[in-house]
Computed example of a mutant assay.
Amino acid sequence: MTWLWVALGAAVGAPARYLTDRWVQTRHDSVFPWGTLAVNVVASFLLGGLTGGADAVSPAFALALGTGFCGALSTYSTFSYETLRLLETRARFLAVANVVVPLVAGFGAVALGWTVGSALA
């Protein structure tokens, strides 16, 4: 039954990633992958909140939201591919920014999520 909760969360997270990425990216006239940054930071915040308040949620909900939804919402492979594409087009500054900004923002988002989740639990 565990796999079903993960699959249900992923079934919502994957389309949410795609639609959010496209929505955010169409609002920026830049080759920088703002959409991927947005979904990864949101997933980090949600996962931080979930783990911070883990005692207040059911194991099934934690699997659906954490492993399923956040796992499908965030995307390391797209982040890696987009960084490589920036390097190939000689947008070196943007490539470096695409490594540093998501790392710092992701850590900040998970810490903030953890704090919020802990306070609400």
Rank of each mutant, 00 (worst) to 15 (best):
V57G: 04
L19K: 10
W5F: 06
G48I: 02
T83G: 04
A14F: 05
A11S: 08
S44F: 13
V24R: 03
G66L: 06
A11R: 00
G66I: 07
V99P: 13
G117C: 02
G108A: 01
A38H: 04
A54F: 03
A91K: 11
V99F: 15
S58V: 03
R90P: 09
V116S: 00
A14Q: 07
R22E: 14
V57C: 06
F93T: 09
V110T: 10
N98Y: 01
E88D: 15
V104M: 10
T78A: 08
A97C: 07
G48M: 04
L94E: 10
L19W: 15
G13L: 09
A121T: 08
V104S: 04
D29E: 13
L37A: 05
W3A: 05
L112C: 05
F45E: 00
A16D: 09
H28V: 12
W23P: 09
A54P: 02
D55L: 13
S58N: 06
G108R: 01
V99A: 15
S44R: 02
T26Y: 15
W34I: 08
V41F: 12
V100D: 14
A56L: 07
V6T: 00
W5L: 02
A43C: 09
G66R: 05
T51Y: 14
L19H: 14
P15K: 07
Y76V: 15
E88N: 14
V110S: 07
T78M: 05
A54Y: 03
S58T: 12
G66M: 05
L63P: 05
V110K: 01
S58C: 07
M1E: 11
R17L: 02
G108H: 01
L87Y: 08
C70H: 01
G52P: 08
V57K: 09
A105E: 12
A60H: 02
T26N: 15
E88V: 13
F79W: 15
